[in-house]
């Protein structure tokens, strides 16, 4: 039928996109992971991944990602909760989101200045009499800046989940004699757990694969899976090993998505 013909015509560019830019790249990454640096087929990369060097890097990457997600969550949840109680909450939400629209590089660059030797925090420490400290290129600065960058991504899904709660639910809970804390623990939090899961998912996966911040803010002290991939592809040109790490990153990504498995996404 005419209808079907036209639909097929629409489909062509989109189908091409799926094949060329979604399916092929995944296959290519998997394919490349089986070639060593000399271009011979081997499982060497996989063996190498299970050596202490790479395992330690993976673990530390997970640890940083966990810390980033954790701090994002404990800061974002109250923010989202308080936001839902403001008047014009959509406008306030927009204001929270606006910084996330500013070019990431610029924000990272700002922190180079802020955390620098003569930045405001050090000036404050100086004034207190503690004296200048090395802030830039530390774990602290890395986690702080990462949390700063990811926080809007955590706030949004939680805000949406909270916002969907009918206010009658909270009224009903307090009406039934629940104190504020009990209301939160027994009613609000369980009902917004999906939003929390989504938020953790959108923060954790990118946090595993950060590479620009590790260079600019952590001064190469932190090596994440993302940094390792970038290093192998663009610096040492060992695409096979880079692809192998990418394969594992993809696997981790799927596991995380299944663990935090909700269909709804906040982005």
């Amino acid at each position: 039928m005419n209808n079907r013909k036209m639909r097929n015509l629409f489909m062509i560019p989109y189908a091409l996109w799926i094949i060329l830019f979604v399916v092929t790249p995944i296959i290519l990454v998997a394919y490349y992971s089986f070639f060593d640096i000399e271009g011979y087929f081997s499982f060497a990369n996989y063996k190498k991944f299970f050596t202490p060097v790479y395992l330690k890097m993976t673990l530390s990457s997970f640890w940083y990602a966990f810390l980033i997600t954790f701090f994002s969550l404990i800061i974002a949840y109250p923010t989202a909760l308080f936001l839902t109680r403001t008047k014009h909450k959509q406008l306030w939400l927009l204001l929270i989101i606006v910084p996330s629209w500013i070019n990431l590089l610029l924000k990272a660059y700002a922190f180079i200045g802020i955390f620098g030797k003569y930045g405001p925090p050090n000036q404050f420490l100086e004034w207190l009499g503690i004296g200048t400290k090395q802030i830039l290129f530390t774990d602290f600065s890395f986690i702080f800046v990462s949390v700063y960058i990811f926080i809007p991504f955590m706030i949004l899904p939680i805000f949406n989940a909270l916002n969907e709660l009918p206010s009658s639910i909270m009224d009903a809970a307090t009406d039934l004699g629940a104190s504020k804390w009990t209301t939160f623990k027994r009613v609000i939090f369980p009902l917004t757990i999906d939003g929390v899961k989504t938020g953790c998912q959108i923060v954790f996966i990118p946090a595993l694969s950060l590479f620009m911040l590790t260079r600019l803010i952590a001064g190469n002290r932190v090596i994440t899976l993302g940094t390792a991939i970038e290093q192998h592809f663009l610096v040492t040109q060992d695409w096979g090993m880079g692809a192998t790490i990418a394969v594992f990153l993809i696997i981790f990504m799927f596991i995380i998505m299944i663990l935090t498995g909700t269909r709804k996404r906040g982005v």
């Binding site: 799926i18 060329l20 830019f21 979604v22 399916v23 092929t24 790249p25 995944i26 290519l28 990454v29 490349y32 996966i205 990118p206 595993l208 694969s209 590479f211 899976l225 993302g226 991939i229 970038e230 592809f233 695409w239 880079g242 692809a243 990418a246 990153l249 993809i250 990504m253 998505m257 996404r265 982005v267």
Partner: peptide, 26 residues
């Protein structure tokens, strides 16, 4: 189709970058 559609949205930038690099090179 929707799941295929969303793969690029959820995949980390590094993986997208690396896999596109392979694709364009090939």
């Amino acid at each position: 189709v929707l799941s295929l559609n969303n793969i690029l949205i959820v995949s980390p930038d590094v993986i997208m970058g690396a896999s596109f690099l392979i694709l364009f090179t090939i």
